[in-house]
Amino acid sequence: MFLELDTGFLLLRGSNSFLLVAKAVSGFGLCIEAPDGEYVQGLSPGDLVAASAPEGGPVEPARMLIDLVRTYRMPLIVLPKDHPGSRRLRVVVSAGPVIELNCGIRRGTHPEQHLLCSSDELAGIVLRGVSGGVEVSRLPETVTVGHLPAA
């Protein structure tokens, strides 16, 4: 399914969780600070930056996190496995040309940017940044799609 997206946000909302998706507006090196060192993910204009809220809640923090990454190029911090802070994270972020939602990963602990922690109701969704929008596959029928303007 093709969903249109420019500089704003795409909101995929389940009954108790949501995913907010935006596109990188410029290319840059996104620093990923992992326990075993620093990695730099090269992002191109049109690549995706997505924020997942597995327990739902307000959308604004997700929008802020996306803008911290795509506009202000804030590094992503990856927690070590079993770090107690993992359960405090209400919103997690991932960036890249393709993002797959997965409910079986411990949030905030994996540097692999093609995987993003989600609720089970959104798990399996695959997003791919394409010209003019996002190609979404495995979208459950229960998930609603909306758009939010750029800040």
């Binding site: 840059f28 090196g29 620093e38 730099v40 993910q41 992002l43 540097p111």
Partner: peptide
Amino acid sequence: VKGKDYKCNECGERFKGLGRKPVCPGCQ
């Protein structure tokens, strides 16, 4: 994660890059 080691030809920074288009984190 299997990053590749890169050196920036502009500023000399060395870094471990991911993705199709490696970009220097120091000078972009």
